[in-house]
Amino acid sequence: MFPIYLGVIPFAVAYAVTARAAGLSVLETCLMSLLVFAGASQFSAAGAFAGGAAGLTIVFTTFLLNVRHLLYGLSLGREIKLSNPQRVVSAYFLTDEAYGIVMASGERSFAFLLGCEMSLFVSWNVFTLVGALAGSIIADPTKLGVDFIFPLSFTALIVPLLKSRTDIIVAGISGILAIVFSKILPGGFSIFATGVIGSLLGAWLTRSEPPAQPNLEDNTREVA
């Protein structure tokens, strides 16, 4: 999963630089990464602090951006056997990337999930600190096109999941919906809305199929 870090690290640095520029202290910049641990909403909050937005507005935007994690939790909760404390711990560190890696791998264990999650949490926070301290000395990493690594990584994660014609139809329509929604809704919320509509479509298209197995068939491959 090395390329995933290449996608995450520059954004932790870029977030920290943005937050410092918005007037947050080094401690505040790092604390947000520790408490929230959600890239897009941290970026938007940093921007909102700079613009003097009200606290409640920032919290509500964060909710819209992050409510998609509800879908990841619902999905993971049925894939992996977890005790209650394990559910709480894995919920705190859940991200797009960790969910993506777990779903694309054949591995279904708490240890593997937490390992993916924590490796991302540690990288995100270490490089938040690096960015907060180094500040504007570092060139804007997004100029190098590293933001392209994120869609490329997820392309590698989605392709093996596309096994039937319905899967491909759902992916195609979700892609189109996401483009439309991303023009009119906050980024993370457009992903949530697309996820709900796309999955409803999939469930409806497969209404004549026998009940689905809760586990995807074992299809271990080299994603990690």
């Binding site: 997820f154 992916a171 979700s174 992903i191 697309t194 999939g202 497969t206 009940p211």
Partner: peptide, 19 residues
């Protein structure tokens, strides 16, 4: 249950395409 089976496909497509 079928809905949840399509969550990763739909969400990943939504993460990929606009990015």
């Amino acid at each position: 249950l079928r809905f949840l089976r399509f969550v990763p496909i739909s969400v990943f497509a939504a993460l990929i395409v606009p990015a």
